[in-house]
Amino acid sequence: MSFLVALLTVVSAVHLMVTLALARTVRRLTRQVGSRPVILEMDETVGPFHALTTDGVRLDRAALPGFGMVAFFSLTCPSSLDGVDGFRSVAGRFPGGRDAVLAVLVGEERAAEPYARMLEPAARVVVEPERGALSRAFKVRGFPAYALVDATGRVLASGGELEEVFVIPQP
């Protein structure tokens, strides 16, 4: 019986050590992921790109407006798609109107159709596959991702939350 108690004590101690080691690893990884930017940061420059909007307009970095707003949404991420309606609301009031706003839907074209129709009155819309030209140019690493850019492609503000990037006036 004392052998069984000793064995159970050793197994419990090993289990506790493994659990603590896993907890430390999870905490370290969470800090690393949390500190990693989801899109280019302030003062970084957008890379070159070529894209076609849903209404047939060709875009490249030279076509960026003097002051523009860009958003990226993943069609496979429900929490990303939850931000589409809020973005549309902000985009509808953005200075420069629709031509100063770009929404990028990442995923399959068929799945993008309802979101593209929802966004088109307030923004130019591009649908692209994972790691498409715009996602690479803006170094998107998470969704949703938002940025304010100037005509040279310099990022003025960016983040993964709408409120991080845009001051949203209350109606």
Rank of each mutant, 00 (worst) to 15 (best):
A147Y: 10
A123Y: 03
E41F: 00
V57Y: 07
G34I: 00
C77I: 03
L52M: 11
I39V: 15
P129T: 07
E44Q: 15
G66A: 15
A51W: 01
C77L: 04
E108P: 01
G34H: 11
Y115V: 03
R124E: 12
A122S: 15
T53S: 12
K139Q: 14
S135V: 12
E44G: 01
D60Y: 05
L105Y: 07
H50C: 08
F72S: 02
R24Y: 07
L134A: 04
E120P: 01
M69W: 09
R24K: 13
F138H: 02
D85H: 10
A112F: 00
P114G: 05
A112W: 00
I39G: 06
R136E: 11
E108N: 08
S89W: 07
T30A: 14
D60N: 15
A123F: 02
A137H: 11
R61N: 01
T30L: 09
L81M: 14
L22E: 14
T54W: 06
T45D: 07
L75R: 04
F138V: 02
P48N: 14
G83F: 02
G66F: 07
F138S: 02
S89L: 11
R36G: 03
A100V: 05
L59T: 13
V46I: 12
F67R: 15
V101E: 05
M118G: 05
E120Y: 01
E120R: 11
L134C: 05
L81C: 01
A71E: 10
L64V: 08
V140G: 02
R141D: 12
R98S: 09
S89Q: 13
T30M: 06
S89M: 08
V33I: 15
D150H: 10
Y146C: 01
V26Y: 12
A133H: 10
Y146I: 01
H50E: 15
D85E: 12
V33D: 09
S135M: 10
Y146R: 01
G86P: 10
A145L: 05
R36I: 08
S79M: 09
A23D: 12
F138R: 03
S80M: 00
E108M: 05
D43I: 00
F138D: 03
F138N: 02
G96H: 00
A116V: 08
T45Q: 13
S79W: 11
V26I: 14
R98A: 09
L102Q: 08
P95E: 14
G107F: 04
P144W: 06
R36M: 15
R124Q: 14
F73P: 06
L102T: 08
C77Y: 03
M42Y: 06
A147C: 09
S89N: 10
A145P: 09
E41V: 15
R124W: 11
G83P: 00
L52C: 01
V127E: 02
F72H: 02
T76W: 04
F87P: 09
M118V: 03
R88N: 10
L59A: 10
G56R: 10
D82Q: 13
G68E: 07
I39C: 12
A23P: 03
L81I: 01
E128S: 03
R141G: 15
G96T: 00
S135C: 13
R27L: 10
A23I: 08
A111P: 04
V101K: 07
A91M: 09
R93A: 14
A147I: 09
S35R: 15
Q32R: 14
E128Y: 03
A122M: 03
R24G: 15
A51V: 01
V104Q: 03
P144K: 05
S35F: 02
V126E: 01
G107R: 05
